[in-house]
Amino acid sequence: MRTLNSKMQGAGLIEVMVAFLVLGIGLLGILGMQSASVQYSQQAYLYSQATLLAQDIAEKMRSNQKTVASNYEIEFGATPPSYTSNYCVSNACTPAVIADWDVSVWRSAISKALPQGSGEIRKLQSAASAYIIEIRFDADRGEGELDTVTMEVVL
Rank of each mutant, 00 (worst) to 15 (best):
M1A: 10
R2N: 14
R2Y: 09
R2Q: 12
T3H: 11
T3N: 12
T3F: 10
K7N: 09
M8H: 11
A11C: 10
L13W: 04
L13K: 04
I14C: 12
V18N: 01
A19I: 00
F20S: 07
F20W: 03
L21Q: 00
L21S: 13
L23V: 14
L23P: 08
I25D: 03
G26M: 07
G26A: 14
L27M: 15
I30S: 06
I30C: 11
L31I: 14
L31H: 11
G32N: 13
M33G: 04
Q34V: 11
Q34G: 11
S35D: 08
A36D: 00
A36W: 03
S37T: 12
S37H: 11
S41M: 04
Q42E: 09
Q42K: 05
Q43I: 04
Q43C: 01
A44L: 04
Y45C: 02
Y45R: 09
Y45I: 08
L46R: 01
L46T: 01
L46Y: 06
L46G: 05
Q49E: 11
A50D: 11
L52K: 08
D56G: 06
I57T: 13
I57C: 04
I57H: 06
A58G: 04
E59S: 14
M61F: 09
R62E: 04
R62L: 10
R62H: 10
N64C: 04
Q65C: 05
Q65P: 05
V68T: 15
S70Q: 07
N71W: 11
N71G: 01
N71D: 07
E73N: 14
I74K: 03
I74P: 03
F76A: 08
G77H: 00
A78D: 15
P80K: 09
P81F: 03
P81M: 05
Y83F: 15
Y83S: 08
S85F: 06
Y87M: 08
Y87S: 09
C88W: 06
N91G: 02
N91M: 09
A92R: 14
A92M: 13
C93M: 01
T94K: 12
T94L: 11
A96I: 06
A96D: 13
A96K: 14
V97F: 02
W101P: 01
D102P: 06
V105M: 14
R107H: 07
A109S: 13
I110K: 00
L114S: 08
P115I: 05
Q116P: 01
G117Q: 01
S118V: 09
G119V: 02
R122T: 12
R122H: 05
K123E: 00
L124V: 11
L124R: 13
Q125P: 12
S126F: 10
S126W: 05
A127H: 11
A128N: 08
A128E: 13
S129N: 11
A130L: 00
A130E: 08
Y131R: 00
I133R: 05
I135Y: 04
F137H: 03
F137A: 02
F137Y: 07
F137P: 00
F137K: 09
D138F: 01
D140Q: 06
G144W: 03
G144N: 06
E145C: 08
E145Q: 12
L146P: 01
T148W: 02
M151E: 12
M151T: 10
L155E: 11
L155Q: 08
